[in-house]
Computed example of a mutant assay.
Amino acid sequence: EWTRMRLGLGRIFLLAAVILGAVPASAAERVLTLSFGGEPRRVTAEELLARPDAATISIPNDLSYKRAMTYRAVPMLAVIGDAALRDADTIEARASDGFVSQIPAALIRKAAEGGSVPWIAVEDPSAPWPSIKGQSHSAGPFYLVWEHPERSSVGSEQWPFALAALTAVAHPLQRWPQLAVEEALSQDAPERRGQQSFITNCMPCHRLKGAGEGEIGPDLGQPMNVAEYMTAAGIRAIVRDPKAVRTWPKQQMPGFTAEQIPDGELDALVAYLEHLAKR
């Protein structure tokens, strides 16, 4: 009797949590929200899997699973639509865990011109994906994956799993002017290159002086800029191997290899943070 009561209470608490927002709706309902002008559109996993353009794709070196993976997926270009993408600058890809990637719409449009091809992989409940190494959950129910990522230099932070929403937004520098470097800097200044590296690699998890949507890591610009309390060598070390610098039980940040962020780009990222610390 007690067991049945506990199960009943558990269902009630889960329902209440979904209603109140404690459990992401996408996790409970397997729904992806698309916002590209007008009212947001909600599509279910079942609807996506039933689309005529759904296909079985193979990703030889999946970024999250670190091995070859096969998925049922739908082409991202078709799901969003050419008209919606034509005037978009940035696609904000929001995951249910607080990871928010700012993906240039141009990167997605390149798929029609021989570039990397983005797909929305959809987890089928009858054939669930394995858990991601070190985590208790899979990459589902929705996961943005890329065929031939090398063609368009797709970054490691542009593969959001546990995807919950895709939204057309303005460029990050328009939304958050505090991210911008001094206008007087030359176009080839390392600080400008570091600015772009920060937007691509750091903003999915971190904010900077309040700029950004990421909720996983701390703000790197306030109340103090990270360059004011950490040396340049320390910043480089924490980017390469965070656990070699500091650890805590719920640490989530992965290290970035020289292939993901080359040494020159990492130097530019440090220069950018130091530049903002002086402004």
Rank of each mutant, 00 (worst) to 15 (best):
S156D: 04
K209E: 06
G221R: 06
V239A: 10
V154Y: 03
M203F: 05
A170F: 00
P125D: 14
A111L: 04
A162N: 12
G210K: 03
Q187G: 14
V226D: 00
L144R: 01
A164K: 12
E183P: 15
I238T: 14
E113S: 15
S138I: 04
L208A: 05
A189C: 12
P118S: 06
I216L: 13
F142G: 09
A233D: 15
E150T: 04
P128H: 03
H148I: 02
S186A: 15
L173T: 10
L179F: 10
L185A: 10
G217A: 06
Q187C: 05
W146T: 03
V169Y: 02
E191H: 11
A127F: 09
S186M: 08
A168T: 10
W248T: 08
W129M: 10
G234C: 08
G194P: 13
Q196W: 00
Y143E: 03
T200N: 04
G210D: 01
S197F: 00
A139C: 07
R192K: 15
K243M: 00
T247G: 03
R207H: 09
I199R: 01
A127N: 14
A164W: 01
G212E: 00
A211M: 11
G234Y: 12
L220M: 12
P160S: 11
T167I: 14
F161H: 09
G214Q: 06
M230S: 08
N225L: 13
P149R: 05
P128N: 01
E191L: 08
P125A: 11
E157W: 06
R109L: 13
H148A: 11
E228F: 07
H148F: 05
G114L: 09
A127C: 05
A121Y: 00
V245K: 03
F198Y: 05
A127P: 09
E147C: 11
E215D: 12
